[in-house]
């Protein structure tokens, strides 16, 4: 299958501190990659390097055959081809839900208002939020806000979607509604890179699991082998932190 994203020898450091070292990754169209690893291992940084929120010290990020390192190509319009949803709620508080979704396609892509509005309403309907179009972010629950954030990314027609622990800040009862939306995206053959701590979800959605530890990719395998027979001790130890021993 066609390769969409390729990362070659990526190195990222903050001053003297190296966070990511020699990262190599290739993502095919329609593939769902789940990135797991202990807190602080550089998962967020990796996603941020991919869509240019961080500059990189070495290596290349290649999207559809074009190098998109922010250093090479600062004004890259490729950024709109990469959709990203963050852990913290990041809707624009002064805009209604509909305006939040419509702003980027109107101003960045300069698309026609009627067409954008129609698509925005369709997408919001699909995540069950059509009734909220004229509400403001503060009137929504955390789960609803994250669903809007997903729609706001989708309406740009991105080639690849990046999710950075989008349910980590949610109350437990709202996690499901957001994960269901992402599961649906997988059914539509969307290309996605998902950072998550929800292991059951990871197992269900992943085509490949990337285990990141100490700033490099330690394992890159299919979900069944990763979750049942991890190759490395580090991965085994990491997975153990999600298990509980029986008390009695």
């Amino acid at each position: 299958m066609e390769e969409i994203l390729k990362i070659e020898h990526l190195k990222k450091s903050f001053d003297d501190l190296t966070i990511l070292e020699d990262i190599n990754l290739s993502v095919k169209k329609g593939e769902v990659l789940v990135v797991v690893g202990p807190s602080g291992c550089g998962k967020s940084t990796l996603l941020r390097c991919i869509n240019g929120l961080e500059d990189i010290q070495e290596g290349k990020v290649i999207l559809e055959g074009n190098i998109i390192n922010p250093l090479v190509d600062r004004k890259s319009k490729y950024r709109e081809k990469i959709g990203m949803v963050f852990q913290s709620y990041d809707l624009f508080p002064h805009k209604s839900i509909l305006e939040n979704v419509m702003l980027a396609p109107l101003k960045v892509q300069k698309r026609k208002k009627d067409e954008v509005k129609k698509e925005a309403e369709q997408l919001l309907d699909r995540v069950g939020l059509l009734s909220k179009v004229s509400n403001y972010p503060r009137q929504l629950s955390g789960g609803q806000k994250q669903r809007v954030a997903i729609v706001r990314a989708l309406i740009m027609h991105p080639e690849i979607l990046l999710f950075d622990e989008v349910t980590a800040a949610l109350d437990p009862e709202m996690v499901r509604e957001v994960l269901d939306v992402i599961l649906n995206l997988a059914k539509q053959q969307r290309t996605m890179l998902i950072v998550t701590h929800e292991m059951a979800f990871a197992k269900a959605i992943a085509d490949r699991v990337i285990f990141l530890d100490g700033g490099s990719i330690v394992e890159d395998s299919d979900p069944t082998s990763f979750f049942t027979a991890p190759k490395t001790d580090r991965a085994r130890k990491f997975l153990n932190t999600f298990e509980f021993e029986k008390v009695h």
Binding site: N51, G52, L53, K75, K77, R79, E80, I82, G83, M84, F86, S88, D90, F92, P93, H94, L103, A104, K107, V108, Q109, A149, R152, A153, M156
Partner: peptide, 30 residues
């Protein structure tokens, strides 16, 4: 204004100027 407002605007493809015009200044003005 939280950093994430700048970052999500950037991630959506807004230029620096657009980010200020449509996202930052309206919030600052309020």
């Amino acid at each position: 204004i939280p950093m994430i407002q700048y970052e999500s605007s950037k991630a959506l493809g807004f230029s620096r100027l657009q980010t200020y015009i449509y996202i930052i200044i309206p919030q600052v003005a309020r």
